[in-house]
């Protein structure tokens, strides 16, 4: 069987980049057999430089070096920055997996634009560029006849964008409500189940590696807001940006409010409400499908024909999110 070569560039080799590389190794045989392609990573870009090998990088080795923060010891390491790699190394699809800066959208924005303009497809987990410039980026993709796919930006492993695209084509989506941030959901769950204060719950989330050292993005609702902006554009055809979303986080929620909710058979959850372009804590009944605990994410959509559908799953994690990234890549190929 002759395999078609598909070249990939990975920009950002952190939790998501490395998770993707691991899953690619694990599923290599399966992908070859089912899709008759050989997915070759030809460049891995980090903040200080890149490794480049047009014949395909040995991912096992790259992963080992990256784990010890020694990527620069790779024999193919160069100080070439991501933007130059995009300009100089031809690949079929660029994976943009750098951190999300919701103010500027950088560095993802320039990486995505440049890749699309160079005629390469882009698959990304980076919310900020899409939450800020959704329609502009889609236009650039269209005029260059390439695709920009972003399943991983919302709900990690949850297949929400593709659910709409491949299974709910004829539906008009009437509303979307979601628990889109694992850290805040973990904190609210802990407070409700164990009666602890927010600080204690947050500390615990950091200890077990769910929350970042600076969990402000999660607790203030900014991360959820970025996802609401993407869903509004993508599933409800609203031409909006992150700055149109009204955001109230969870930091002012008192243990007493959580106790009151519980007494009345409810829970408090941080909900992204796409119709209203709003992120805010909401009261939901205990038996409601969106009442998921811990770091889980859940998205409930109401469509005119299919009616209510709720999906629940892992909204984060390098390995889990790779499921969405690979789904986008394989979608582009076929």
């Amino acid at each position: 069987m002759k395999l078609k070569n598909i070249k990939l560039t990975i920009i950002g080799f952190g939790e998501i980049g490395r998770g993707f590389a691991r899953v690619l190794l694990e599923k290599k045989r399966f992908i070859e057999r089912e899709y008759e392609v050989d997915l070759k990573v030809v460049a891995v870009c980090e903040i200080g430089g890149s490794i480049i090998d047009e014949d395909g990088i040995d991912l096992e080795k790259a992963l080992k070096l990256a784990e010890n923060k020694e990527l620069r010891k790779h024999e193919n390491w160069t100080s070439m920055k991501a933007l130059d790699v995009i300009k100089k190394v031809k690949s079929d699809t660029v994976l943009e997996l750098t951190p999300s800066d919701i103010k500027s959208g950088q560095p993802g924005l320039k990486h995505i634009k440049e890749s699309l303009m160079k005629g390469m497809h882009v698959v990304t987990s980076n919310k900020a560029p899409l939450a800020l410039k959704f329609s502009e980026l889609q236009k650039i993709a269209n005029s260059n006849k390439v695709k920009l796919e972003y399943e991983a930006t919302v709900g990690g492993a949850l297949p929400i964008i593709n659910l709409r695209k491949h299974a709910l084509q004829i539906n008009k989506i009437e509303s979307i409500h979601g628990i889109l941030n694992g850290t805040s959901n973990y904190v609210l769950t802990k407070m409700a189940e164990e009666g602890v204060t927010m600080d204690v719950a947050l500390k615990e989330a950091q200890e077990i590696g769910i929350a970042e050292a600076d969990p402000g993005y999660d607790i203030k609702g900014i991360d959820t807001g970025a996802k609401v902006a993407i869903l509004a554009n993508s599933l409800m055809d609203m031409n909006v940006s992150f700055n149109d979303i009204e955001i109230t986080g969870i930091k002012d929620i008192t243990p007493e409010a959580i106790e009151l909710a519980k007494k009345h058979n409810c829970v408090i959850k941080l909900i992204g409400d796409v119709n209203r372009l709003e992120v805010s804590p909401r009261l939901i009944p205990i038996n409601h499908p969106l009442n998921v605990s811990g770091a889980m994410n859940a998205i409930m959509i109401n469509a005119d024909i299919a009616k209510n559908i709720t999906i629940v799953g892992h909204g984060a994690g390098g390995i889990e999110t790779a499921s969405s990234l690979l789904s986008d890549i394989l979608d582009i190929i076929s």
Partner: peptide, 9 residues
């Protein structure tokens, strides 16, 4: 005040 609404509210 901070208000927490119900989902349908």
């Amino acid at each position: 005040f901070l208000v927490i609404r119900s989902l349908e509210g």
